[in-house]
């Protein structure tokens, strides 16, 4: 990157804002951050808006409305580097549950006049619509990883992000496996590290917030999890959670559902 401070724009699509808040939560680093990047557009943090194009676009949220479909194209066309921030942006997020059902049914239950709504039948990751240069997973993202990505971009190198499962972080912190020790269903063995094994270290199973880890084996994990289900269908529901629309988790949950139908 050249000697000028790179301009950064932070955008929100369909999401809870939690990932943008993770950036704002970088309290100790915010001043240093402002010294090295020019935060040109970040409505959650500042009123001032500088016009594009931008060096880096950080995009939170998934694409769920016709308006968002058009907006993401516009953003891509005026950004050099585009980062999808968080699990909504990388896999559709929890709102992608609609992809496995009829969204009109939900709208009719929730809203008195659903005809005023303009929405798509699916919630989809940014990468289904435009080219994404880097995906940062997490619900919310890990703020240390946000810093690592920015530092890597500033120094023109590849960011160092974990390529392994949550189990590795779990063991490093000395936590005892909830799956083996307590029979608690856990997606950790199929999920990408990054959270520091937050849930398993506190006695709960992993929900898969950071998405499937590359080259993992969720299919085999589903066999283990099905053997310890606490209620029928628990494993499929677990895979159809926050990262449920990620291809390998989707395939795993689909396979379980297909098997259940077959055996009926």
């Amino acid at each position: 990157m050249s000697s000028h401070k790179p301009t950064v724009a932070v955008y929100k699509f369909s999401s809870c804002d939690g990932c943008q808040l993770s950036i704002l939560n970088l309290e100790d680093e915010l001043l240093d951050l402002a010294n090295v990047i020019d935060i040109s557009y970040f409505l959650e943090a500042a009123r001032a808006e500088k016009p594009g194009p931008y060096d880096i676009a950080i995009v939170e949220g998934s694409i769920t409305t016709p308006h968002e479909l058009a907006r993401i194209q516009e953003i891509r066309s005026e950004s050099k580097t585009l980062i999808a921030l968080g699990t909504c942006a990388t896999t559709g997020g929890i709102q992608a549950l609609r992809n496995f059902a009829n969204v009109d049914d939900f709208a009719n239950i929730v809203y008195a006049h659903p005809d005023y709504l303009h929405f798509l039948k699916t919630a989809t990751p940014i990468s289904e619509h435009v080219q994404v240069d880097l995906e940062l997973w997490g619900c919310p993202v890990n703020k240390a990883q946000v810093i690592e990505v920015i530092v890597a971009l500033l120094n023109n190198r590849k960011p160092s992000l974990p390529s392994y499962s949550v189990c590795m972080e779990c063991k490093r912190r000395g936590a005892i496996c909830v799956l083996v020790d307590k029979g608690i269903p856990c997606l950790g063995p199929a999920t990408q590290a990054g959270c520091g094994a937050l849930c398993p270290a506190n006695g709960r199973g992993c929900y898969g917030c950071f998405g499937p880890f590359r080259d993992g084996n969720p299919q085999s994990l589903s066999t283990t999890l099905q053997s310890i289900e606490r209620y029928p269908g628990e494993t499929a529901r677990l895979f159809r959670g926050v990262s449920g629309y990620a291809p390998s988790f989707r395939k795993t949950a689909d396979a379980i559902s297909a098997n259940v139908k077959e055996s009926k």
């Binding site: 240093d32 951050l33 010294n35 090295v36 920015i150 530092v151 160092s160 063991k171 199929a190 994990l221």
Partner: peptide
């Protein structure tokens, strides 16, 4: 087809010794 590639076996193994060195750079 059964292995999860999760790494648990190597982390609990008392002889496994592999490690990685990770650099963390400050913003400035």
């Amino acid at each position: 087809e059964r292995c999860l590639s999760c790494g648990n076996c190597t982390q609990v193994c008392p002889t496994c010794f592999c490690w990685d060195a990770v650099d963390q750079m400050s913003l400035d």
